[in-house]
């Protein structure tokens, strides 16, 4: 089972370049698609879900030419868009049942089994008679994944599913996702680095419509081993440090910047070597691309 994306290009009517000659091969399991806002993640997801055309390039899922055989890809697809609503005044059970029918589970008994199973899976069984319209964000998102799982799809696309969820819900949702990765391709787009490192065996970082890094998170982190250093500095010194060192990223820690820099050797000056994490990989990749562009 393989999803391959070749030389995909897409420019919107307003001139925004969403996908810029993007190519990617994705195999079984959970695949994380990481990138900043506006990187082209959603465009890519929608293109794979046959909701959007591309200007050029191909997408194929096994034997299916996604851009041409839209009906075919839809039969094996489960899709959870970034933002979605539901018809008001419809209970979770009824709505899921309706989607199950639309997804092609014509057999009544099987549909019942599917709907009840999925409601169990996403822990909404007790709330099955409540209107989805009135669900909380987390419940709604779980309903969303249940909907995407109907009919045992071979390809699942989830677009920024944990955005806006509280930490508890995020954990719950990620647990759900991790279950789904067997025997199918699950494409998870997010800008939350931890989601990817928690869940995915393979990943890509995209920015400005291009893939700028691809690989298993572990390998990518390994590549940075012994080169990332950390130091807490004061705010007024920040610019100085930026000029002197290759700052990967900084975040506030107790009100003062905690910066990570990349350096082959020990930079001294109070820096401490740390074990790199996926965010270091992510920011390095983004920075490198941005620098290349500006140069």
């Amino acid at each position: 089972m393989k999803l391959s994306i070749n030389n995909l290009c897409k420019t919107y009517a307003n001139g925004v370049v969403a996908l810029d000659d993007l190519s990617l091969d994705i195999g079984l399991g959970l695949f994380g698609l990481l990138g900043p806002n506006g990187a082209g993640k959603s465009s890519l997801m929608r293109t794979i879900a046959a909701l959007q055309t591309a200007d050029s390039g191909t997408v194929s899922f096994d034997e299916i030419d996604v851009l041409k055989q839209k009906a075919q890809i839809r039969k094996v697809l489960g899709y959870l868009p970034q933002e979605f609503g539901v018809f008001p005044k419809t209970s979770a059970y009824k709505l899921l049942d309706y989607y199950a029918l639309l997804k092609g589970i014509g057999h009544k008994k099987q549909r019942k089994e599917t709907v009840e199973g999925l409601l169990n899976l996403v822990n909404l069984y007790q709330d099955k008679n409540k209107n989805v319209y009135e669900f909380s964000g987390g419940m709604k998102q779980r309903f969303g994944i249940a909907q995407a799982l109907i009919g045992n799809p071979k390809l699942i696309i989830v677009d920024e599913p944990t955005a806006g969820l509280d930490p508890g819900e995020r954990v719950r949702f990620n647990n759900l996702l991790s279950q789904t990765g067997e025997d199918r391709i699950v494409l998870l787009s997010t800008h939350i680095v931890d989601d990817v490192s928690d869940l995915c065996s393979d990943m890509a970082i995209i920015n400005k419509g291009k893939v700028i890094m691809k690989g298993a998170p572990v390998d990518l982190i390994d590549a940075l081993a012994d080169r990332v250093w950390e130091k807490q500095i004061s705010k007024k010194d920040y610019d100085k440090y930026c000029q002197k060192y290759e700052v990967i990223h900084s975040r506030l820690h107790a009100g003062n910047p905690l910066i990570h820099i990349m350096n082959e050797d020990n930079p001294e000056n109070g820096f401490v070597k740390i074990t790199p994490k996926l965010d270091d990989v992510y920011f390095t990749a983004i920075n490198t691309q941005n620098n290349n562009v500006s140069k």
Binding site: G117, N120, S136
Partner: peptide
């Protein structure tokens, strides 16, 4: 909008539904 379901894991396994096939034939 209170969320009463806060169990992090579910006993139900997705694989239990693996046998259900979709059909896109005329009848449905």
């Amino acid at each position: 909008k209170t969320d009463i379901n806060d169990k992090p894991y579910s006993a139900f396994q997705i694989q239990q539904l693996a046998h259900i096939k979709t059909d896109h034939e005329k009848s449905s």
